[in-house]
């Protein structure tokens, strides 16, 4: 099987995962908490309706049919990006989450670029003097930062940079529909929080891979030919060491969705995480379904992209699949 065949197989696997994800979302949101009718009606209204009338309403809405039929319909609707209307304000779900989604994509996108770059910078600094003071500080410091919950690092950054040294706003006061350029002005602290929480794993993998690469024959040869240690690290060891970090970066990007929810809440960032928290507390099931499916699709897409990049960068993976 060639590289194309392998890529197609990964694509098929990704699509299967997406189908299963939709099933989990459907059963988790539409079946378990009671049905669409009891979920929409407030408790006191529900008590005044007779069981017969409820049954008639259910038949009217088509929610008394088998779940598999309804699930097939659900899939058909989301395939056309029709997520229905929100239960409270009756506006189209897609319209409501459109702007917050863009804002969150800006936040996640900038973090996804900045975090691996920061990891590379720190790892290179570490291995230039392995076991030196800087290396030890970075190794301990990243594990420490990784262990702190996002809502603690976020708030500590607010205390530092908004209360003690007032250089950044503590709370973002922007409407969700504000133009994207305005978002850029207030995004530094949220990004810093996300990077602090997510950098440890990528840094550790890259550092280990760099140390292994620096021990190899080809780096030794580069050293013997008179290249400086900096050149050996950056030109010879780094390209080989980046491959194992890539899958960790893909994992980090997926975790941005979880982390982003909390971060947005702390900073008042007008993004999709805030919408989700609100949708859950008001039991707005169509919105939760839409946000969950978008989030999961983003993760599946990231993993697929990482697979393709590893396939393109590492000839060993291609060769192994021939055997």
């Amino acid at each position: 099987m060639g590289a194309t065949g392998l890529a197609l197989r990964r694509l098929a696997a990704s699509l299967l995962v997406l189908l299963l994800v939709s099933a989990v979302v459907y059963w988790g949101t539409a079946v378990l908490p009671g049905d669409a009718l009891t979920a929409v009606l407030p408790m006191d209204v529900l008590q005044t309706i007779s069981p017969e009338e409820l049954a008639r309403k259910r038949a009217e809405l088509g929610i008394d049919r088998p779940h598999l039929v309804q699930f097939a319909e659900f899939l058909g609707r989301i395939a056309q990006l029709d997520f229905g209307r929100t239960t409270v304000t009756r506006e189209a779900v897609l319209e409501r989450i459109d702007h917050p989604l863009r804002n969150s994509l800006i936040l996640a996108g900038l973090t996804a670029i900045a975090a691996p770059l920061a990891a590379i910078a720190l790892a290179v600094a570490s291995v230039l003097r392995p076991r030196g003071r800087l290396d030890a500080t970075l190794t301990g410091g990243t594990l420490f930062a990784y262990s702190l919950p996002e809502f603690v690092t976020g708030n500590l950054l607010i205390i530092l940079f908004a209360v003690l040294l007032p250089v950044a706003p503590a709370v973002i006061m922007l409407p969700t529909t504000a133009p994207s350029l305005d978002i850029l002005g207030v995004i530094a602290l949220p990004i810093a929080t996300l990077i602090l929480g997510g950098i440890a794993y990528q840094y550790r993998l890259l550092r280990a891979a760099l140390i292994e690469a620096l021990d190899s024959d080809y780096c030794e040869r580069a050293r013997l030919s008179g290249a400086s240690e900096w050149r050996v690290v950056v030109r010879h060891a780094l390209p080989a060491a980046l491959v194992p970090m890539l899958s960790a970066t893909a994992q980090f990007v997926s975790s941005l969705i979880s982390g982003g929810i909390v971060i947005e809440f702390i900073f008042g960032f007008p993004g999709i995480g805030q919408e989700l928290v609100q949708a859950i507390s008001t039991r707005d099931i169509p919105s939760v379904q839409a946000i969950a499916l978008f989030g999961a699709s983003a993760v599946v897409l990231c993993n697929f992209a990482a697979d393709l990049m590893i396939l393109a960068l590492d000839p060993r993976v291609r060769r192994r699949s021939h055997a």
Binding site: L20, V25, G28, S258, R283, A292, G295, V299
Partner: peptide, 23 residues
């Protein structure tokens, strides 16, 4: 294996939220 892949493809916090909504 496929089911595990699917469950792990859902961002942890989204899965938690869906389940809290359900349970």
């Amino acid at each position: 294996g496929r089911l595990v892949d699917a469950l792990m493809a859902i961002p942890e916090f989204l899965l938690i939220s869906i389940l809290v909504l359900a349970f």
